[in-house]
Simulated scan of single mutants.
Amino acid sequence: MKVAFISHFDLLNPSRWQRQQMGNLGSSLYMYKSLKNACERLEYIGPLEERHSLAAKLENLKYKICRKLSSSKTYHYWAEPSVNRNYAKQLEQKLSQSDADIIFSPQLSLLSYLDCPQPTVVWTDSTCAGIIPYYPDIFGDPVSASLKHITELDRRALQNCSLAIFSSDWAAKTAIELYQVDPHKVKVIPTGVNMDCDRTEADIKDFISRRSRKICQLLFVGVDWHRKGGDIALDVIKKLNQLNFKSELVVVGCQPISEEPLPDFVRVMGFINKSTEAGKQKLETLFQESHFLIMPSRGDCTPASIREASSFGLPSLSTNFGGIPTLIKDEYNGKVFDLEADIQEYCNYIVKTFNNIDSYQKLAISSFNEYQTRLNWNIAARQVKELLMSCI
């Protein structure tokens, strides 16, 4: 079986990625690497050239002018049908020279207009339409034309593909309900971590033994303070210290938004670029020495940080929103709380678990086991390979 892995991004050159693309493209790159290891033959096709019709250019100019004058609406150039039809033409030309048996994409949109004789498969976090309301930092408030185009891209891709694999039960359910997709061609396979990992249980036990017993360190990782629930994490750490429970919050990826000066028990690390060796080592150290990852998200699919935390034996505290319950199994690799959970609920769980050393160690080791058995690329790629074989 030969697989053609398609992407319109320059996936194999991380140095060319924009900062806001790193999470998404990091997952796609590790997806590519894992499938390359699992499949006998895999061919990478990309990047593609983004080309716009004159009509699309004029439409984009119109909305740019409107936005400057009064409108807060967002126009999504990338969702224009002309752009995606052109991507399809480029892919069809390249695929005509390929002997691939199956076409694989980490993006739904690339399959929307693609016409090829081979079966097509997508493995992604969610439909775009399913997450627009929860990702204002990415989608803003789309103009009606863009919303229509995005929805149509999802619909066409899901209708045309042979198999749609999602990384969470929530995303799969959303696709079926929004687009009446045949449930038999929708599967759920969680993805892995966006960093190399050769850690063993012995390493995890060593990390746990070196974590402080005098002060509890909570780690927050995210570029969007509000959507990732940074304000909730801040309230939790304040409450814990009010209760005389010595603890600190380490913030990675963004600057906290607070009306008051940040207390001394909050450390802001800023953005850490893990594609550099120095950034990678700094982030790994934080995962090793922290006691809990805290991410009370108001909007998320399957956050990479949760999977990465498990790979370090770091339990995660998050919400029952979106795909998060697929990643976090209560008392196995952390706990999910209701979106409206009181701050005291987080505090009670943290204090109770931290103060019981046996309970904490068991949870931390179990978190690593969840990574080993469910949340890693090797396991996922083997499962995807079996599904690909069934499509031929």
Rank of each mutant, 00 (worst) to 15 (best):
E289G: 12
I208C: 08
Y360V: 02
C391F: 04
E80L: 08
M22T: 13
V384P: 02
F368Q: 01
I138D: 07
I131L: 07
L262W: 14
D141R: 08
E259I: 06
A341E: 05
L163T: 06
V181N: 04
C161F: 03
R211K: 15
P14Y: 08
N355K: 11
P81F: 08
V223R: 13
V336A: 07
R156N: 13
M22D: 07
E49I: 03
K148C: 01
L48M: 05
V351F: 10
A88E: 03
P133M: 07
A202S: 12
F354Q: 08
T319F: 03
V221T: 11
Q180T: 13
N194L: 03
K238P: 01
D203F: 06
P81E: 06
S71H: 07
W17L: 10
E345V: 08
N24P: 00
L339K: 06
I328P: 02
K62I: 11
L163P: 02
P261S: 15
R298W: 09
D358T: 12
T127I: 01
R156G: 03
K187D: 05
K205F: 00
S258Q: 13
L283Q: 12
S305I: 14
E59C: 06
N348D: 12
D224C: 00
I357F: 15
L48R: 00
L35C: 06
M295K: 07
